[in-house]
Design a protein around this nucleic acid. Sequence first.
DNA 1: TTTGACAGTTCTATTTTAGAACTATAGCCT
DNA 2: AGGCTATAGTTCTAAAATAGAACTGTCAAA
Lengths: 155, 155
Amino acid sequence: MKWDTLEEEPCSLSRTVAVVGDRWTLLILRECFLRVRRFEAFQSSLQITRHLLSERLKKLVRFGILRRVPYSEAPKRYEYILTQKGLDLYPVIMAMVHWGDTHMGDERGRPLLHEHKSCGKQFDPVMVCSECGEPLHAKQVHVHAGPGRRGADAA
Amino acid sequence: MKWDTLEEEPCSLSRTVAVVGDRWTLLILRECFLRVRRFEAFQSSLQITRHLLSERLKKLVRFGILRRVPYSEAPKRYEYILTQKGLDLYPVIMAMVHWGDTHMGDERGRPLLHEHKSCGKQFDPVMVCSECGEPLHAKQVHVHAGPGRRGADAA
DNA sequence: TTTGACAGTTCTATTTTAGAACTATAGCCT
DNA sequence: AGGCTATAGTTCTAAAATAGAACTGTCAAA
């Protein structure tokens, strides 16, 4: 498959996967949510090659997930900050973290704990229905074609 | 990075990414949630090479996300069915779908609509705090090290 | 006995990624 | 002035993963 055309498929998952569906991009986003913003900081905490880091950051900027903001004029230096579009990826990251906590843990317990500032408690993320507020389960969901769907492939 | 060691890192995101953090795996899981179960069905709807499909299915079985269940004795044929561990990935997939709907849509509207059987309405997935029920936003969450964390890297 | 469906495996060519070295700008120290 | 360090990249080659196509094996139906 040509991954550049994936983002044009009539499937929202494909389009998302085209942008954030690779290992390094997801790990870079994790760092972003942990307030990492600079090239060297990403590089040293992830051990990603500088080449790939450079490329992934460019891609995230191109898709409007990160903004490249100057923080020094001489020499010109930039840092990478999540846009609203990027912040909106939080549920994706948290859903993955929670799955990892639940199914990939070891005897030592969770690597990270999350505290909700609003209520002060340690929490888990729960995905609910926007209409009735009940937790979502795959079997309770019926999928049907929407307006953005041509006949072709499953989406 | 050796991706085989990623699953042992003290970070739940890394561990999840090690298993489902590539393009094809995520697309295969989409098909699973759309009730696709057989090799030929995955292959023809995804246009994935048979080689990679075979490999990814094996990996998903190895990690306990899919079960390989015989549906014909002669000739021996199998289908791939989500386990509970696999079903638990639903929030990950739905979070990605929702982000795609929100940020990667085109003028034609959504490719797919989701109806919640429990309440009968078309819905969006919303991620909320398990303790107070409020929608989660990155800025309202404070992260701190848990018991499964050694000093080393960000997680 | 030939065709077709299904579930893979095997092969080569292309693309991506890893790993290391290199470039460029500028501040700071002596 | 000359050299060291910090930051943010780029460039190069080798190794690994993926694409694309062909092949294998089992069995049923025509």
